[in-house]
Nucleic acid binder design. Structure first.
Lengths: 218, 218
DNA sequence: TAGATTGTTAATCGATTAACAATC
DNA sequence: TAGATTGTTAATCGATTAACAATC
């Protein structure tokens, strides 16, 4: 109703807030101000207040935000107050890593099915999950009400897997393959390709023989 | 000299351009226009031209961009025309995955040393690299002229590893742990935490029982 | 009450896009 | 020459920040 169309930048900050809030929870902090949050995250307090205000009035003037309550609210916003089921295709090292993270996560996102294209992977177990053949994907997604697909296959297989996820009816795809995927508009794609992260990090290196001259003007 | 201070958004797009250009190269395409690139990437052609123009005049009016030449130029900008050495701490599944990617990558970023905190990992091999104890980190970074550190340890160990990387003199850190790391300003931190990616993806799911009403106004 | 901090409006800043002269 | 496409300026759009009344 009041939803003005939330920008991606805002949505990307919500999980970061959640992370700090969970840390606060562990330290049994009751209340946190936008000021404190801003200090921890190098963000402007006004921005944090504005981000949260898109979704409701979660704070108390003169006091700040109740940690437990704000966690609950952000979880609702992100829809992880309910369990969200996730399927993963690509039972390699990266697939294993994600399944393990999953096991220890407090978030309500659960990888409940793992698939692979290659016969030698099928039938092996990851975290008590049997690796299934791709032929079982559509059926499993429907039966288990899986809503998100994760792609951890090599780039050249990624589009094919994405197509199958889309046909099976997932609403979002997290893609780790270094490939540009085409999917219908109604399916959300999120890319998490660390080769690109690494390349953009390299940009900020100082080229050998080039002095850094940032301090010149101080 | 002409460097007006390039925004992060621009830097993050450069690896994406590089990816498409490499695909074009494989298909033996000689020349590509900002129009075509924009179509492939869902980006505005003017934005692409502007991004590239920050760094020089790489195109030809009426013709477009020479694929080979532009790849070369973007690699120079990202500083991956030279080999950049990378160290990784955390020889778990994720560490393995990154080392493997690395092996097949055409980019000049090389993981040349792997470390772990836990004695049972030390001495094992990943991709012909012996896993070293943390005590060897400083020395190895110096000797091998390693410039980037990757952190693939659990969250509670991440800050400690980051400190050691900083002390050893790396210029950038790619952090996969779901933790907020504090490092000096001159060290660049890039976070690649997929738990956050997954959470922000969940935001775009349609809550059960809520009809999607985007098509109402068409 | 005095101090602190929210939610929100207005001001600022920066990024994206449109438009077009230059030119291949 | 006519058509295409760049590099760049100006216009637009959107995101961040400052400021402050409301209020705990």
């Amino acid at each position: 109703m009041k939803q003005t169309k939330i920008s991606e930048a805002v949505v990307r900050r919500l999980p970061i807030y959640l992370q700090v809030l969970n840390e606060m929870l562990n330290r049994e902090v009751q209340t946190i101000s936008s000021q404190d949050l801003g200090l921890k995250l190098d963000l402007n307090p006004a921005q944090i207040r504005k981000d949260l205000a898109y979704f409701g009035e979660f704070g108390r003037k003169g006091v700040g935000y109740d940690v437990v309550y704000l966690i609950e609210k952000i979880r609702q916003i992100l829809k992880v107050d309910q369990t969200i089921k996730v399927a993963l295709v690509g039972a390699g090292n990266l697939g294993h890593a994600l399944c393990n993270y999953n096991k220890y996560s407090k978030d309500n996102m659960q990888i409940t099915a793992v698939f692979d294209i290659h016969p030698n992977k099928i039938g092996t177990s990851i975290n008590n999950l049997k690796v299934l053949p791709m032929s079982k994907l559509t059926q499993t997604v429907a039966e288990q009400k899986i809503r998100i697909g994760i792609i951890t296959v090599p780039a050249f297989e990624a589009q094919n897997v994405a197509n199958q996820f889309v046909d099976a009816g997932v609403e979002g795809i997290l893609n780790f393959a270094p490939a540009i995927l085409r999917v219908p508009d109604e399916v959300r794609i999120q890319n998490a390709d660390f080769t690109k992260e690494l390349l953009s990090l390299a940009y900020y290196l100082v080229r050998e023989g080039e002095a850094q001259n940032e301090s010149d003007l101080d």
